[in-house]
């Protein structure tokens, strides 16, 4: 199994995630796109771990997963709080720091 196809897939998924962050305005979908980017980075980590023959890459992917789980919890709590005060999950509506 060669390494390049996995890396290209990872790059494509990362690009699609970044594109989604740019284009979507529903905060939850933007968040999902961020998750997709994290997953693409994980794929690159795992691929490079196999390529170089040591497990440091897999450890990095593991830490990315843990941090992503924590990030999702806090991010979704923020989205819920914003939705409660503004009745909207669109990122355009939350353009001010207060009010």
């Amino acid at each position: 199994m060669s390494t390049e196809p996995f890396l290209v897939l990872s790059a494509l998924l990362f690009t699609i995630g970044a594109f989604g962050v740019l284009i979507r305005r529903n905060a939850i979908v933007v968040f999902m796109c961020v998750e997709l980017m994290l997953n693409a980075a994980n794929l690159a980590f795992v691929t490079f771990a196999r390529h170089h023959g040591n497990l440091d890459g897999q450890i990095a992917a593991f830490f990315v997963m843990v941090v992503a789980a924590a990030e999702v919890v806090v991010g979704l709590a923020i989205i819920v709080t914003i939705f409660r005060t503004r009745r909207s999950a669109s990122v355009d509506d939350a353009s001010l720091l207060k009010y």
């Binding site: 060669s2 390049e4 890396l7 290209v8 790059a11 196999r50 390529h51 497990l55």
Partner: peptide
């Protein structure tokens, strides 16, 4: 995407080592 794919595809030159030793 084009930049990333091209850069990543050209970065790897050696054959994968594999995880058998690890």
């Amino acid at each position: 995407g084009v930049l990333l794919v091209l850069g990543v595809a050209q970065a790897v030159v050696s054959a994968p080592v594999g995880l058998e030793a690890a």
